[in-house]
Design a protein around this nucleic acid. Structure first.
Lengths: 195, 195
DNA sequence: TTGATAACCGACCGATCGTTCGGTAGATAT
DNA sequence: ATATCTACCGAACGATCGGTCGGTTATCAA
């Protein structure tokens, strides 16, 4: 397991910049984080940061892509399964929790953008596509008689994802912690809190 | 129903500035909204805005206070009831949905602050106090045998509030719409999605 | 030793931001 | 008429921001 031994002067690479930036974005918000602070946290100057990236917005773009790619991979995995819709729904919700835990800081960045720029708009569009996948699963499960018919599928999907996405507000990554949270989410969402 | 007829030159008041500001905060984010834009949306100049308020942060403060006051009023109302904990929990969750719908734009502002300044820190502290109230209700309901014992009360409280708070991401105020959403939240959270 | 490569730096620029200040405009009350 | 009150404006400020540019430094391969 030796280091890959890159050419040229050793130092930080693009991924290091992204990691540092994302951490600050989540601590202070994207707008409130300056390129100077990103550079400072890496021990280099502002202009050195621009050697690794093209601009601040690219950092946002890369962070959101890593989050969205993980979520869509999970959706794709579930789509190939030959199972009742409610089972696929349950697995997708579970996977979403695990992806959120695994790519915690990237997902957190994603869930805070407001569509201010074109880059953010595009991310919001992809988010809505993911929402639609979940909504469709709820609808199917309802048609199959496994989900109570008195709730609107779109509303249920949004509330389910609201529960999952709220993890970014309070979950702190710990080994094995994600599975316990996923269990709680599935338990409450599908069986309810009441005994 | 005549206008209150104030003294002096007619025009906007502090509440008008707050309303305009909060709308922009929610569309673009607090940091991304300039005092110029707030003034522009009111048809006055930037310096005129400062006649009504002391600064940008005061607008944030006022918005968050309106949201938090509503939530704590709901918590207080529930506290006085002589009912099983699960009933009080259910009513508090329902009230939270209604407060969120009623003071939608203020709550939305509140739920997006990251604790960057002292004002924001103080709001986060009050939010955590509200969370603790919900957690305590879950714990009591569990002790009374009405909530499944296999979920951690703090986790359950956070997931419940996560569901409720997610409304700011997709709910659009409509007359009578809040009650339907509240029903869906209560239904899923307490009885579960599965039939 | 030399050339290529990759990381870094200091100085600077134009734009935007929140805020201040001194003064003006329009309404009501006396 | 006049005093009072409220709302408004133009001009300017210091600070901060994202980004650019030309040049320097450290490592590896030949």
């Amino acid at each position: 397991m030796t280091a890959p031994r890159r050419r040229g002067r050793p130092g930080h690479d693009q991924d290091a910049v992204l990691t540092a930036a994302v951490r600050l974005f989540n601590e202070q918000g994207y707008d409130a984080t300056s390129m100077f602070e990103i550079a400072e946290s890496l021990g280099i100057t502002k202009s050195s940061v621009y050697h690794h990236i093209s601009g601040k917005e690219q950092l946002l773009q890369m962070a959101m892509d890593r989050a969205l790619d993980g979520l869509f991979e999970a959706a794709e995995d579930v789509r190939e399964l030959d199972l009742p819709a409610i089972e696929r729904l349950e697995r997708l919700i579970r996977s979403s929790v695990l992806v959120l835990a695994e790519r915690f800081e990237f997902v957190t960045v994603l869930l805070r953008v407001r569509g201010n720029t074109e880059v953010e708009q595009h991310a919001l569009t992809r988010r809505r596509e993911f929402d639609a996948v979940v909504t469709e699963l709820v609808k199917q499960a309802q048609a199959e008689g496994d989900v109570r018919p008195d709730v609107d599928p779109a509303t249920a999907a949004r509330l389910l994802l609201g529960m999952v996405n709220s993890l970014t507000e309070w979950y702190r990554p710990r080994p094995g912690g994600a599975e316990a949270i996923a269990d709680a989410v599935i338990s409450i969402a599908f069986e309810g809190l009441r005994m």
